[in-house]
Design a protein around this nucleic acid. Structure first.
Lengths: 205, 205
DNA sequence: GTCTATATAACGATAGAC
DNA sequence: GTCTATCGTTATATAGAC
């Protein structure tokens, strides 16, 4: 045999991740996952009981790939501009090889809100108080323009993730092929840092 | 009878719009659409032949609600700052009553890329050349910082739409109920205009 | 146009042999 | 642990009476 027990389970999980990510929960088929894993369909139920349970494990894992990064960067001791650059860098370097991850997580989170709540609880993640404080301190010192930290966080994340969510829109409107789209993403890394840091720069009177 | 022929078709279409928007194509059920329309399931096929055909018509119509607005504003003769404020105003006033529209359109567009291409062709919409020119002229005059117009458009649209796409994420991370989330959206209108216009402001040396 | 009844296929899930 | 065969259900879609 080429595969032991553990490897089979991993193989199924990997195939499930791929199929769920492409088709979503409702659109995914257990048979397609089995084919992708090159394994008998019964094995899916043997290892994961049901489609629902398999999906929840996949979603939990993918959520775990996209959020801790964000919270870690926000909670660090680095200066604000470094944090912004770091977030952009970290996300793009990772998403470059997983461009459909944001769509999967953001969309299925809306269909399964409790899975995200559960994840934050189990990981002990709470709103990044350190970051909020940092923004307020900078504003009081007059180094940046006063700003709601929550709006700022959502803006950064949105600016980073939206191009991945709106892949088809971008390709179609700007008439880009796959290479052109990748080039657009690449250019966006530099664009975003300037755009964001300029947006919060204190305006001299 | 309370309903003539045309009203039945509209009733189905309206119900289909609601169900497809909530569940997506794969998650939607013809029976649920029939129940929502308070009509016999057979009528769906009588009027629209198949689920696929019904869905495509719904998607086309919803695409038509979200994009022409954008292109009209971009193509107008107004000054740049007015355009930005106008886009924010128009989107939020409309999406306030249709908060799940962006998720539906953005996501299903990725699953049905041709429907969007078809829409742009039939409506004769092309990349907003006027807007691109406007950005370049401002940059040359030194009134704004030099910027790729495509990146700028995607940034504006992303900043506006992302809070609707990431509804669950925002509610969960910031611990908001429905009212708190609506308040967040309301505050964002004012936040965004400042944020965006500040981001492209020319920085004095 | 509208209904009931049903065809037909696909899906998730399980039983049971090996 | 892995396979084949199959159950029970539900989905889209159609036939045919009214």
């Amino acid at each position: 045999m080429t595969n032991g027990q553990k490897e089979t389970e991993d193989q199924i999980f990997e195939a499930a991740t791929k199929v769920f990510q492409e088709k979503g929960y409702a659109g995914a088929r257990m048979q397609e996952i089995a084919d992708e894993a090159e394994i008998n369909k019964s094995m899916l139920h043997y290892y994961f009981r049901s489609k629902e349970k398999l999906f929840r494990q996949v979603l939990q894992k993918q959520i775990g790939k996209i959020f801790p990064t964000l919270f870690n960067v926000l909670s660090s001791e680095n200066p604000l501009d470094e944090k912004v650059r770091e977030m952009i860098e970290v996300y793009y370097s990772y998403l470059k090889d997983n461009p459909s991850l944001p769509q999967f997580v953001v969309m299925e989170m809306n269909n399964h809100p409790d899975e995200f709540r559960k994840f934050l609880q189990e990981e002990g993640i709470s709103p990044p108080q350190g970051f909020i404080k940092q923004i307020q301190v900078h504003a009081v010192k007059g180094e940046i323009t006063p700003i709601d930290p929550r709006q700022f966080i959502i803006s950064i994340v949105g600016l980073i993730l939206f191009p991945f969510l709106a892949q088809t829109m971008i390709k179609t409107v700007f008439n880009l092929d796959e290479a052109g789209y990748m080039q657009f993403l690449k250019e966006r890394k530099d664009f975003l840092a300037d755009f964001i840091l300029n947006a919060i720069k204190f305006e001299a009177p």
